[in-house]
């Protein structure tokens, strides 16, 4: 590719984001070097790397919202989802990979929260890339010790009679929260219901939108 300062297109043909104009960091230099070495050694290709980025970009909480809304409207699917989250999501066409995905359901008496205390494991194949706070020392440290305080910081104060269950993920076992279907949504379509499901409601740190 010609070294042209006016041609700010990435190899995928997309314009560079503004933050690519900041001074080159050491670790960015390493990323470029590692990527080019992998291509030169025949391990991968630029097209394959771009395709992987596109596949990840295509994943978003909207995928998880479709799963939740189906669980709300299809009792047999809900049962399959709770029995085997990976297979139920695959059934809907989502590429869950080799992960063991476990769906945990909120009820009037149980609120579920997911975390990865050891690193940053997240149901990324269903929800896309994780928010920064999920990977922070503060969330990882405290979610298992004082979940009610952490939830309050997210604006959720739960009644004392609601049990909080915290699920600590591992590299091979990821969780996703199935929030409770809100009242006032009788007869709603799956797509309309899915519009109520937020990312944070599937992590356990937020509520679904109010109908």
């Amino acid at each position: 590719m010609p070294h042209d300062h006016h041609d700010h297109l990435s190899p995928s043909g997309h314009p560079y984001r503004p933050d690519n104009d900041e001074p080159l960091s050491y670790w960015q230099t390493m990323e470029i070097a590692v990527r080019e070495l992998l291509i030169e050694k025949g391990v991968s290709t630029a097209a394959e790397i771009n395709a992987q980025i596109d596949a990840m970009d295509a994943r978003s909480p909207a995928d998880g919202a479709q799963v939740v809304a189906r669980a709300w409207t299809d009792p047999a699917f809900r049962d399959r989802l709770l029995a085997n989250g990976s297979d139920a999501c695959r059934e809907m066409g989502f590429d869950i990979g080799a992960l063991h995905l476990i769906a945990v359901e909120n009820t009037a008496q149980i609120h579920n929260l997911i975390v990865c205390t050891l690193c940053s494991c997240y149901p990324r194949n269903l929800l896309g890339m994780s928010p920064d706070w999920y990977k922070s020392r503060e969330y990882r440290s405290r979610a298992v010790k004082e979940p009610r305080k952490v939830l309050a910081e997210f604006g959720m104060t739960l009644p004392e009679d609601v049990q909080v269950r915290v699920h600590d993920s591992t590299a091979d076992m990821r969780y996703v929260v199935i929030p409770a279907r809100p009242d006032g949504t009788d007869g709603w379509s799956v797509d309309r219901l899915a519009g109520l499901v937020t990312r944070d409601s599937m992590i356990g740190t937020g509520r679904v939108k109010t109908p």
Binding site: S10, H14, Y16, R17, D19, N20, Q28, E31, I32, V115, T117, L118, M129, P131, D132, W133, S136, R137, E138, Y139, R140, S141, R142, A143, V144, K145, V150, E153, F154, D168
Partner: peptide, 20 residues
Amino acid sequence: DMGGDTAGPVRPSEHDFALW
């Protein structure tokens, strides 16, 4: 292995991921 450690408030930080 920081589960259970003392730490400050969770800041609701997020950013759009850069190409790199």
